[in-house]
Amino acid sequence: MSVPGRLIPLHQDAAEVEVDPADLTAVVRAYRPYVAGVVKRMLGRDDEVDDIVQDTFVRAIDGLKRLENPLRVKPYLASTAVRLTLRRLRRRRLQRAFGLWERWHPTLLSTPRANGEHMALLSDVYRVLDSRSADEQVAWSLRYLEGERLERVAELLGCSVSTAKRRIAAVDAAMEEAHRD
């Protein structure tokens, strides 16, 4: 698998900085940008990112105190963030069925560091993802936007590898269909 070099896959925690898991200040400063990035890429919009990231750290506080290995902090936070994002997306999909959640459009996602090409690419991606199920959206995001291995995607989603693969393939097919020239 070749992944763009600047991406830091979630499973490559051995390369992470070591912080005391019980030191919330250090954990927040070291991992808040990372967690926020993961959540934002999965959601494709800004409006719920802060809430989910805060919730991730709130829920992780007790668990972090029990972690003995500092290298487990990052995957622990990632797992929590994925679980909360998935739950939120499922709820929003349900609300959308009643007309309570708006469809994705470019103004919902701030991209201060993105150039015009990036903005166009992201728009293509999230228009398609927004039409898929929450599980498919998160699975595809983890696989291709975060560069996660298939096994890890399945583990984070709590499903089998074949199910994860099927969900990712479904989004790929939709992407192919949407971008066919």
């Binding site: 070749s2 992944v3 808040r32 940008p33 990036h118 690419l121 992201l122």
Partner: peptide
């Protein structure tokens, strides 16, 4: 195409100041 999408997504990584981190931690 996947690589280009990933490259574009990388631009979504937010950056926070120390002050923001302090406020965030207090809120947490």
């Amino acid at each position: 195409r996947h690589q280009r999408w990933a490259e574009a997504a990388r631009s979504l990584e937010p950056q926070y100041s120390t002050h923001e981190a302090t406020l965030f931690e207090a809120e947490v």
